[in-house]
Design a protein around this nucleic acid. Structure first.
Lengths: 209, 209
DNA sequence: GCAGCAATTATTCAAGTGTATAATTTCAGC
DNA sequence: GCTGAAATTATACACTTGAATAATTGCTGC
């Protein structure tokens, strides 16, 4: 006569996805230490034991969650590219503006990013993921910089564009962090203007604001 | 006949400092979750109970540790300023180079910074500390930019220098992060050159490399 | 419908957590 | 040297953690 919790069977992929999403939510809200098996299970609407059924260990679940996070960030960036104009210069400007305004600028994403950054120095798997993600983003930026410079009839030799991509990437990262963490410090649209003008000076190029 | 651990009485300030240092070490090595009272006490060469004697709660100790960290970073930056040349342009170049090379670039500092970044979105006290630190650094950078522009006979109206300081700060932050976390990606001295050339273009100024 | 298998829940356990309290030891002042 | 107060250690406790196992339930194929 003990009343047991009623449940529904979901597919494996759905349950894994739900558990991963719940893990990311927990980390975003309370940091890694808040992502306990019980909290994750509660948020996923499931019992803690089920985690063991889909992931051998909690560490495996966290690793899967981080991989999902990185993939999503990359995909979001790639998806935004499709909506950008074809003209290389306008395209670069749109890409820059996109990187420093919502929804890319987002406190939750920032918290998740900080959590993963913390693991990178002492977890080789995490470092590999970070390195690959970093280089992919930077290479994409470098490609757009080269296209824009070529369109404007400016020189674009390899060592110079590499340096510009590294600096440009760093600039976007820094602006993204501060805009995400201290939104009240910047006026509406200010980040966008600052980023585009800074890139214009960096590349010695007129960029449409 | 139970043999008790022998100990020496240290002053209050020495013990508090030792506990704070031990806390920072633990966080740097294994993240916040590794900073348990037992691990901290062990690293400080002390018994866990003593923590309670100097800090009402572990949370208090962690807060004190973060405040110490921020203060140290600020002081380190200020100390380096004294060794810079008096000429505003050379001074700015030295400041930039300093920010993207060791010992400022440091995986341990980076890990600690990421740990505190993670707390900022959901802890108002941490956000206040971060905001104050960020603005102090940025204002100092803006002052140096203004001095350099004035020396070069360039215009330096307020809204423009604010934007340049925000962008310059973001650039230094981003380069510092990547240099700290992926040191193998950059050649010896490469970051320094990239940073100074990027600033030269940003400010339309010749900077000594 | 029903048999059986896999998904899910419930329960348990050992280890680790922060904190509170009691027992000792150090050391300064006389 | 002694004494007493404060610093430090030792011990205990209640709670949370991740994981392992047993019990049950939902569902698919016949």
């Amino acid at each position: 006569m003990t009343l047991r919790r009623t449940f529904k069977r979901e597919g494996e992929e759905a349950r894994r996805a739900a558990l991963i999403d719940a893990t990311l939510d927990c980390i975003a809200e309370g940091g890694p230490q808040a992502a306990t098996v019980r909290a994750i299970a509660l948020k996923a609407g499931v019992t803690p034991g089920l985690i063991k059924h889909y992931f051998d260990t909690k560490e495996d679940l966290v690793a899967a969650a981080h991989e999902t996070l990185m993939t999503r960030l990359t995909e979001a960036s790639a998806a935004a590219l499709d909506d950008l104009p074809a003209d290389p210069i306008a395209r670069l400007a749109g890409f820059i503006a996109n990187a420093v305004t919502p929804p890319v600028v987002d406190p939750r994403a920032m918290a998740l990013w900080a959590a993963s950054m913390q693991l990178v120095p002492r977890d080789t798997a995490m470092r590999d993921v970070h390195e690959a993600t970093y280089l992919a983003f930077r290479d994409r930026l470098e490609g757009m910089i080269v296209d824009a410079l070529r369109t404007a009839g400016k020189p674009h030799d390899k060592p110079a564009t590499r340096a510009l991509a590294i600096a440009g990437n760093a600039l976007l990262d820094g602006l993204w962090i501060e805009a995400s963490v201290l939104p009240d410090q910047f006026a509406q649209g200010e980040m966008r203007t600052i980023a585009i003008r800074a890139f214009a000076r960096l590349l010695d190029l007129k960029l449409p604001e």
